[in-house]
């Protein structure tokens, strides 16, 4: 039962609800394959650090899921490649430290949702 985290960027040309159903499509694909989807995050339209397909903004989404079947990652990625509205995607496997980190992040333990260091480190 391995945990995975996938981030993908959708084309900004899509309207809000089109972006929503593509995310639904991927979540459905995961739940159909009996993966247990832990967390779906939509960061909405965000400015990218460099233009991709000469677009400088994109819909960022994150799906965190756990599955025992390792071939699911290939099917998910071919689905990403097939869907041309997905500009970029990345799936990573989570080790025990990142799982603990994600739970704490979801609980909002860090003052800003994205802040990483749990305690105020002497920066």
């Amino acid at each position: 039962m391995k945990n995975y985290e996938t981030v993908f960027i959708l084309n900004p040309v899509l309207s809000e609800d089109q972006a929503k159903d593509t995310v639904e499509k991927f979540v459905k694909l995961l739940t159909k394959a009996k993966a247990n989807v832990i967390n779906v995050e939509k960061w909405g339209l965000k400015k990218m650090a460099y233009p991709i397909q000469n677009k400088s903004t994109g819909f960022y989404n994150l799906i965190e899921f756990a599955t025992a079947e390792n071939t699911l990652i290939n099917t998910l990625e071919t689905e990403y490649r097939r869907d041309e509205s997905v500009m970029r995607f990345m799936t990573i496997v989570l080790d025990k430290h990142s799982i603990v980190y994600n739970e704490r992040r979801r609980k909002g333990e860090f003052n800003r949702t994205k802040k990483q260091a749990p305690r105020k480190e002497a920066a």
Binding site: H97, K114, E121
Partner: peptide
């Protein structure tokens, strides 16, 4: 090493302002 000192175990690639350091 600030990671050993503060006990930070995982560095999140999504956290831009921490990586900017």
């Amino acid at each position: 090493c600030r990671f050993k000192k503060n006990g930070i175990k995982y560095i999140d690639y999504k956290d831009a302002d921490f990586l900017l350091k």
